[in-house]
Amino acid sequence: MKKYLLSISFAIAITAATLAQRTPQASPAAIVMQTVGVTDFTVKYSRPSIKGRRILADSSVLAPYNEVWRTGANQATTLESGTEFSFGGKKVPAGKYALFSIPSGAAWTIILNKNFTQGIDAYKEADDIARIVVVPTSAGYTETFSIDFSNLTDSTANLNLAWSSVKVPVQISVETQTLTMASLNKAVAEKPEDPATMQTASGYLLSKGKDLPQALALADKSIGLKETFSNLWLKAQILNKLGKVSEALPIAQKALTVGAASGDNAFASFYKGQIEKGIAGMTAKLPIVKEAASVVKGKKKKK
């Protein structure tokens, strides 16, 4: 019994000691992760609160004007990117960087520095990888310093610094199409007999309206490896986009038949309606296509 009580006491003591090691921080840590296209961005920082103090002003207690600020609290704020990107118009290699800033009323200087483990005391301008000037805007009051992403597209975003009634948006962009095509070309080269890989590459080209003959060749290869309602429907859409409606229609109809027999839930819940709508659109085009062709033939005969 004594041994049992001693064991319990020891366990409680260990738990208490472990809990005692962690206390609330004045400026708690935060992580912001955002994907832009195929590029992952991660920001790690600590969030100071105003708490009635003077900030963002000449000789202020926090983030004084015209002095290098760690853009947060505690250790250096960091920004990490999985690919090359543009930071306010400046090209930056993939990697991890310290994010510093120099606040000012008219314009902020935003800095990415190669030494991401440093503090303010060790900052060297010679290690800057990018230094840009950004005009701040007015915003709703923010008690606790915040960093977030907004205005997302598949290749651009704003990285926003917000505190008090100030917001500083930094434009970020990535070469998503170039990166995606490089990745898809590599996948096609490495898996030339994988129908899903062929279909993915073909579908991306169609979505961007680029190199449609190549998209069609990839769709055909996917169908040759393994015919499915989805790659048949993909081929029909490419042919339709190329203006070959009379060729696209029977393939779309076949996609509908194959899909109905597949028992695939994705077909019933998503593809079926999409294909039926596509077939209706193609059917409506056919009389116009035939009429245009007959007009052209008539003109040739007159000559």
Rank of each mutant, 00 (worst) to 15 (best):
P103Y: 02
V38G: 05
V68I: 14
T39H: 05
R53Y: 04
S146A: 13
W108I: 00
K221Q: 14
L99D: 03
K300N: 11
G72D: 08
V166I: 13
G37R: 10
V166Q: 12
Y123A: 01
F116T: 08
A76F: 07
A11C: 11
Y4I: 12
N160F: 11
I132V: 10
Q34K: 13
V135K: 15
Y97V: 06
P287M: 13
Y45V: 06
L256S: 05
S59A: 13
P213T: 13
N113V: 02
V170R: 04
Y204F: 15
F116P: 02
A157W: 05
W69Q: 09
Q34E: 13
T117P: 10
L242R: 01
K96A: 00
Y123W: 09
S183T: 12
A130P: 12
T142V: 15
K302H: 12
T42R: 13
G209Q: 06
Y141N: 15
A266M: 01
D127V: 01
S60C: 11
D58N: 07
L112R: 00
K290F: 14
T153P: 12
T15Y: 13
F10G: 04
V296H: 10
G82L: 02
A217H: 04
T180K: 15
N185V: 05
K114Q: 09
T200I: 12
G259K: 08
S60M: 14
F87Q: 07
Q75I: 10
A292M: 11
T176L: 00
T109D: 09
F41D: 02
K299P: 00
L232W: 04
F100C: 00
L62Y: 08
